[in-house]
Structure formats: C-alpha cells, structure tokens
Computed example of a mutant assay.
Amino acid sequence: MADGIRAQQREQTRRTLLRESRQLFATKGYGAVGLSEIVRTAGVTKGALYHHFDSKAALFRAVLEQVQREVAEQVAAAADAEADPWTQLTAGCRAFLTASTDPDAQRIMLVDGPAVLGWTEWRALDEAASAHHLTEALTGLIEAGVIARQPVAPLAHLLSGAMNEAALWLAVSGRPGDLDDTWAALARMLESLRAPYGTTAA
C-alpha cells in the first residue's frame, strides 16, 4: 500500500514538473529558464527534479515529446474523421498547421526543440511523433494510384519541412488570414502531387 502511494506521489511530481516547466519554456524560452525557477514554480526540491530528470535538457526533451505527441494526436484525429484517403491527408496537414500556430507549440516544438536537442535528435522525435503518419498516408496514396509512383521518403521529408517552415513563418507573421493563405498555398502543392485521372499505381 505504501509503495503504491509513493509511486502515485512520484508520478504526481513528474506531472507537476512537466506542466510547470512547459509553461515556463513556452513563455520565456529554454535559455531564459533556470532549474531554480522550475523547482520553485513546481514546489519541489532539486533532488525531486533530479530523481526524474538528470538535466534541464532531459526535462525539456520530455516536454517536447509531450507537445509533439499532442500535435500528432490532433493530426490523427482530423485524418481519422475522414473516409477518403486523399481527404485524410489534406485534413491531417491542415490540422498540423493549425495546431502548430499555437504559440506554446511553436516555441517548444519548432524554435527551441532543434536548438536544444540538435537537428538529428529533434528530427528523430518528429519522425516518431507525427512524420511517420505522413509517410504512411503518402505510401497508401501512391499504392492506390492517387499520387504518381515515386520514392516516399524524400517526398515525406519535403512536405514535413514545408509545413514546419510554414508554421515558423506563421509564428511571426501575425496578420489575419495568414493561416488561410498558407493553407491555400499548401493545398495547391498537395494537389499538384495527384496523378492524372486514370493513372494507375502500376
């Protein structure tokens, strides 16, 4: 019984650290937040923090994974709500752009993420969170003949990079209608991938 209570307390401490550090990272940026401020805001000791995370970077990584997972869930939900595979792709892409315009997600996922973890590790997390959904969707569309047959990996990376770059631009543009304009441009890019009517996957 006591072990179960201690386990619950440890999990509660971890959740608190993630919640409070996420808010600090989102509002101030990784570089402006110190461990002392994190533990003070979370109401825990540094020892408690180090029990769960061996560094500020490790804590940030956990926060980033949480943000990426939430965005991926929003993308998957938007895609799953559609029956047609092509509409699933476009709905998922639009959901990613919309989710990425949230200031917290932008700062943590797109600005500080690559800078703190390095491009290689950040890309690996991005692949694990949402990029593989894009790869799967493109693979299915190519196999069905909706998109002309071509290597999937470079296409998925190009589209993923375009959407990440668009989200970063939206973070600083600030004009009404920019999200709609960005989506319209992306939709035209996606439409250009469609195979001519009657083309098969052979």
Rank of each mutant, 00 (worst) to 15 (best):
L110R: 12
T101N: 04
G113S: 09
L117Q: 06
A128M: 11
A72E: 01
G43Q: 07
K46Y: 15
A91V: 06
L97R: 01
A26P: 02
M109E: 11
A78K: 07
R94D: 00
M109F: 15
A26Y: 10
I108K: 11
A79C: 05
D112H: 14
A26I: 11
G31I: 14
L89F: 06
E82H: 05
R19V: 02
A72W: 11
V33C: 06
E121H: 11
L24S: 06
A95E: 01
R19D: 00
V63G: 00
R123Y: 10
R61T: 15
A26E: 03
G29W: 13
T41R: 14
E136H: 12
A32K: 15
K46R: 15
A42R: 10
M109H: 14
E127I: 13
A99F: 09
E73Q: 08
Q106H: 11
D104T: 12
W119S: 15
V44H: 03
E70A: 10
K56D: 02
L138D: 00
E136L: 13
Q68C: 05
C93H: 05
L110C: 12
L89R: 07
E37D: 10
F96A: 03
V63T: 07
A62Y: 15
A105V: 14
G34F: 15
K28S: 15
R94H: 09
E82T: 02
D80V: 07
D104Y: 08
Q23L: 12
G92P: 02
L17W: 09
L24Y: 14
G92T: 05
A72C: 01
A81V: 08
K56V: 04
K56N: 03
Q74Y: 10
Q74T: 08
G29I: 14
A78Q: 01
E65A: 13
A58M: 09
D54V: 13
Q66R: 14
T41N: 03
A81K: 12
I38Q: 01
A76C: 02
D102F: 08
L110E: 07
A91F: 11
L138T: 07
L64F: 11
E121P: 05
F53Y: 14
T135N: 04
G118V: 05
P114M: 09
S130Y: 15
E20K: 13
A72Y: 08
C93G: 05
V116R: 08
S130T: 10
D80P: 01
Q23V: 12
E127N: 07
T101H: 04
S21E: 00
P114L: 09
A58V: 12
I38W: 12
G43E: 04
G29A: 13
E73M: 03
T45N: 03
Q74M: 09
P103D: 02
L17S: 01
S100C: 12
V67C: 05
T101I: 03
T45R: 10
F60M: 09
A78V: 06
W119L: 15
T87I: 03
V33Q: 06
A32I: 12
T139G: 08
G118L: 06
D126L: 12
T45W: 11
F25M: 05
H132Q: 12
A78I: 03
I108L: 11
T98P: 00
A137L: 07
T120E: 10
A48K: 09
E70N: 04
S130R: 14
G34T: 15
V116Y: 06
A26W: 04
L49D: 05
D84M: 05
A91Q: 03
F25H: 08
H52I: 03
